[in-house]
């Protein structure tokens, strides 16, 4: 349960950007959450609501984009969602694949008023 500190970090970063942009109000925050980032999105939504309540960001919306794990085949460059991290390429059958997405936890955009 580290979603409260993650929510606080999101709010701090958003506020910093809003201040740099002339102190405008933050109405929406976009966050990318990878499938294996270890963040429970329901808990993060709940904690975000608690964090902004009765602050200058009260009412701001949190838009979470879930990013599934993706592998890229190192032989044929096919990209696929692996079943239980099995790296076998469904197109060419090769075993070598590297993970290219799924562990991110990042801000993607802000909407300012």
């Amino acid at each position: 349960m580290h979603e409260l500190s993650i929510a606080q970090s999101i709010v701090d970063s958003a506020r910093e950007h809003a201040t740099l942009n002339g102190g405008r109000r933050v109405v929406r925050i976009g966050v990318r959450v990878g499938e294996i980032s270890g963040v429970a999105v329901e808990a993060l939504e709940f904690c975000f609501g608690m964090t902004v309540q009765d602050t200058d960001m009260d009412g701001a919306a949190l838009e979470l984009e879930r990013i599934p794990v993706r592998f890229r085949c190192s032989r044929c460059a096919h990209e696929f969602h692996p079943v239980e991290f099995l790296g076998q390429c469904p197109t060419c059958g090769s075993d070598g694949a590297t993970m290219i997405a799924g562990d991110e936890l990042g801000l993607s955009f802000l909407e300012l008023e």
Partner: peptide, 16 residues
């Protein structure tokens, strides 16, 4: 009208 600003940074930027 709200303006959308792209921001690409880790959520844990301060920790990092």
């Amino acid at each position: 009208m709200a303006e959308r600003v792209e921001v690409r940074q880790s959520v844990l930027k301060e920790n990092d």
